[in-house]
Design a protein around this nucleic acid. Structure first.
Lengths: 212, 212
DNA sequence: ACCTGAACACCGTTCAAGT
DNA sequence: ACCTGAACACCGTTCAAGT
């Protein structure tokens, strides 16, 4: 009751609130009903702003894209720092929102804003002297690295540990122990920067691109 | 009725059948009830073989790991071909099962078999002359590439297209058109191989590793 | 040991109805 | 135009009961 400030709904407000709930409780826990409750409205009202739940998730993805900061090409903007800046920003967004990797990995960009942002960041690669397909391959390689690195940080290679109940001889191998320890105590962002260096050097040497 | 061949259930059979349903109808469409029906049993019976749905998905992940073919290190096995073999196999599994990227990206390996497979493939990197943290970083970089590349193939960069309703001047930019066309008509596996070459050359030059 | 049925607290989505 | 309530066909999971 009373003056619950509810500054009129729109697609963006749904998206932001949904993302907030996803960050807090996980992607699987998001429901139209809970989102409605959070917005002080019945679930069915949401269908005025969003076609269905799938469309809602697309809007959340747009929200994530909008958080990525890319430097548009222009005079005084060197291509390599611009690329690094955009990739770092993407990495930060992916880590800030644990469900983001899942969303990026399963849904293509659909809105003008999101596709526009992809294009702007692609242009940094073209500015490096690469043309056409080469620029696209380089772009794709770089995005793949960031997405995949973030995925290993959150999934596959995260918190590996042997279950005490196994204890077959091969599982007490000291080399295995070392492998597991490394996966546990990774220096996080340092590893990301190392990989970023590898990406940039691979691009430079493969495509004969100027040093900066 | 009649002799419905139902060769007794176990965790693996649940996992395989669940994966079959996921491949056919998508991850979101999998339910305990449908899986039960597919196995000729009520949903509640499944809880004898699996702790809950989350545990079921872990078992599906194990199923995916088991499809990845890695070459154990040994005499006569050169490190670079071994690495390429494992990464290609992972890529194939990810493409064969559209929901696999999502599963790998969101769940760590948990079983002895899956962690063992990760370890075996990690050992190829150690065999290249890298030690300790360097080997782990190289391994992680390579896995990140494959996972990320597959994700872009299925998500983010897949089927980008401008919606006719936009048509703001910036969206008819011929450079944007080219960008979108490239994302559409990628030569698929060729792009993967190019990226794999980039990964290997980055590793060789960063870690001063022998040519083969 | 393995399976079932009923039950509980949830889902997404439609539709006719309210203001 | 925006919101609601009831309804439908689903969910995951527990539990007591069957064989």
């Amino acid at each position: 009751m009373s003056t619950e400030e509810r500054p009129t709904l729109d697609r963006d407000r749904l998206a932001e609130t949904a993302l907030k709930l996803i960050d807090r409780d996980g992607l699987a826990a998001l429901s139209m009903r809970k989102l409605g409750a959070e917005l002080g409205v019945e679930a069915m009202s949401l269908y005025h702003y969003v076609k269905n739940k799938d469309d809602l998730l697309d809007s959340v993805l747009d929200c994530l894209y909008s958080e990525v900061d890319v430097l548009p090409q222009g005079p005084g903007v060197a291509w390599e720092p611009a690329i690094r800046h955009g990739l770092r920003s993407l990495h930060e967004v992916l880590l800030r929102h644990p469900a983001a990797v899942e969303l990026f990995s399963s849904r293509p960009a659909r809105s003008q804003a999101s596709i526009g942002k992809l294009f702007v960041s692609y242009q940094s690669f073209a500015a490096g002297g690469l043309e056409g397909l080469e620029a696209f391959q380089a772009f794709r390689f770089a995005v793949a690295y960031v997405l995949g690195h973030s995925a290993t940080e959150l999934g596959v290679l995260a918190q590996l540990k042997v279950d005490p109940s196994w204890s077959s001889s091969s599982m007490t191998d000291p080399a295995l122990q070392q492998f597991l320890e490394q996966s546990a105590k990774v220096p996080g962002s340092e590893m990301f920067e190392n990989g970023l260096d590898l990406v940039m050097s691979a691009l430079r040497s493969a495509y004969n691109v100027p040093q900066s």
